[in-house]
């Protein structure tokens, strides 16, 4: 079972949370997305036990929630007009 995709997904997720902690939200968002894509591939195409699939899906949900938050934050940050002197 080529679980290098699983390993890749885990590496990406770890990297994403490092970037997240380092406040590189743009990079963290991209990495969260990539890691979920890999996890999803593993769940769909690399037969895992139902239990393993369920726990991977739950992880995906967490990462997606976090990614959503980062996306919202970035959107707001970008829209933030430069504080014009009143």
């Amino acid at each position: 079972m080529a679980n290098n995709n699983l390993q890749k997904a885990i590496d990406l997720a770890n990297k994403a949370s490092e970037e997240d902690k380092a406040k590189n939200y743009k990079e963290a968002l991209r990495l969260y997305e990539q890691s979920v894509q890999y996890f999803l591939h593993v769940v769909k195409y690399e037969a895992q036990g139902e239990k393993a699939k369920q726990s991977i899906r739950a992880k995906c949900a967490d990462y997606l929630d976090r990614a959503e938050q980062l996306k919202e934050y970035l959107k707001k940050a970008e829209k933030q007009p430069p504080t014009k002197p009143v």
Partner: peptide, 21 residues
């Protein structure tokens, strides 16, 4: 509770929602 019952399709949908900038 959501996380425990999520399906592949739901994950895919959220991914697309994220990706589409």
């Amino acid at each position: 509770a959501k996380a425990s019952g999520i399906s592949d399709e739901e994950i895919e949908r959220q991914l697309k929602a994220l990706g589409v900038d």
